[in-house]
Design a protein around this nucleic acid. Structure first.
Lengths: 226, 226
DNA sequence: TTTTAATTTTAGATTTGTCTAAAATTAATT
DNA sequence: AATTAATTTTAGACAAATCTAAAATTAAAA
């Protein structure tokens, strides 16, 4: 069966893509959503109609202010639910994405604000991504990928860029998770793989592909309260 | 826009209707769901295909064992979410239905079992309806006549013993019907008449004769543990 | 700058879920 | 028992969301 991809899914995906590339292309969005270019074009017309996106045919597109606000509200819902699942229902941080993907479509605004209060207004979700507050303010944090981290510079894992369950499993296996303090002991130019040292553990080797997707800060760990 | 009514909505509605009437008719289900008879017939064919319902065209229909199991799981989800909303997020008992209606469509079984444990395996939802356990066992409730109901014990009208039109007219006049939640505020020993309070209404007085013929299930305040 | 390639859009086909109106069946009334 | 009424089903219309394939446009290469 052809699975329907909602307006909300489009907004969220555009938001993430435009963070990386400034402007978004039809094909990129289609790939990200697992749909076809033609379907994306159809949706773009609707989003333009609703004044959520700046779009001229054949030129790319990006969210306008209204669109960004809407996208951030969805991200807020997603991350609050992930936090709930991990902190209250004892899920592992690597099992919550799909469930939150469903929960984020629940529409009640009051529900989300109540949930936020119940959780104590958390700052960051279980993957280390910041949770927008009820005004839609998204705290920006300076993150670099592990691949860019200098040798021997202590850092802390603050986010995972690509949250496939395969990736999360690999990290889990290597005892790398949010908040883990580590540093790079050696870089192998041949394949850009890294030897990484975590305190109290033997060193592990990570591929360049993994390193690109592990985000770190030299900053403080994510706090529970705002 | 024509709003789509899911398979799950149909199962739940059939379940409730067949509790009352044993077998369900096309029109009754359509009315209950706010759709049309033709749409119900379409869905019935699919449910029969999936072996969830016993259905012969032009004769009514009812859920078979599989169908009942499925319906009970949905009811379980609905009531657990209602409990969560009221007990953890401080919603009023009268604001949670619509939100739970959305939440009940979240599919993860693990989520529901974890939620159940987090809430302490509650027995009854905020409206006093029993919550099926993880095996789908739905606690049966004991029916007593209103005359036997203790003072101030919340209860729900679940049947009328003598359905003369005079009796029904009297009950109608006092806004008491099947499903009405009420409690006894005062008992007058002189003639065994009762003062009964229905939510959002002024108290009414009922004779012993009427009280004997109104059947209620005790609607005990939700407990935390089973 | 022309040609070729890649991307994006449009047009129209397909699917799905709903509906209306007519036909089939069952129930009620005379 | 025959007629009428009510209910249910079927047939086909309509709307929405998706897709494929072709056309339009833009970008890249020669």
């Amino acid at each position: 069966m052809k699975v329907s991809v909602s307006k909300e899914d489009h907004l969220k995906a555009i938001f993430h893509l435009q963070q990386e590339h400034g402007t978004v292309t039809t094909n990129a969005l289609a790939a990200s959503l697992g749909t076809r270019a033609a379907s994306v074009t159809d949706m773009l017309k609707k989003l333009k109609e609703q004044k959520l996106v700046n779009y001229e045919r054949y030129k790319g597109f990006k969210l306008n202010n209204e669109g960004k606000k809407a996208a951030v509200q969805i991200i807020r819902k997603h991350r609050l639910w992930e936090y709930f699942l991990v902190k209250k229902l004892q899920f592992g941080w690597d099992e919550v994405h799909e469930i939150a993907e469903e929960l984020e479509h629940i529409s009640s605004r009051k529900l989300i604000d109540r949930l936020d209060a119940f959780l104590g207004h958390p700052d960051t979700d279980p993957h280390g991504d910041p949770i927008p507050d009820s005004q839609g303010r998204l705290q920006v944090r300076r993150q670099v990928s592990l691949a860019e981290l200098p040798l021997n510079k202590p850092a802390q894992v603050s986010g995972i860029a690509s949250q496939t369950s395969e990736m999360l499993e690999l990290l889990q296996y290597n005892h790398i998770r949010l908040g883990t303090r580590l540093e790079i002991r050696k870089k192998f130019p041949f394949d850009h793989s890294l030897e990484v040292k975590v305190r109290n553990r033997p060193p592990v080797t990570l591929s360049a592909q993994v390193a690109k997707n592990v985000l770190v800060t030299d900053d403080e760990p994510p706090t529970e309260k705002r």
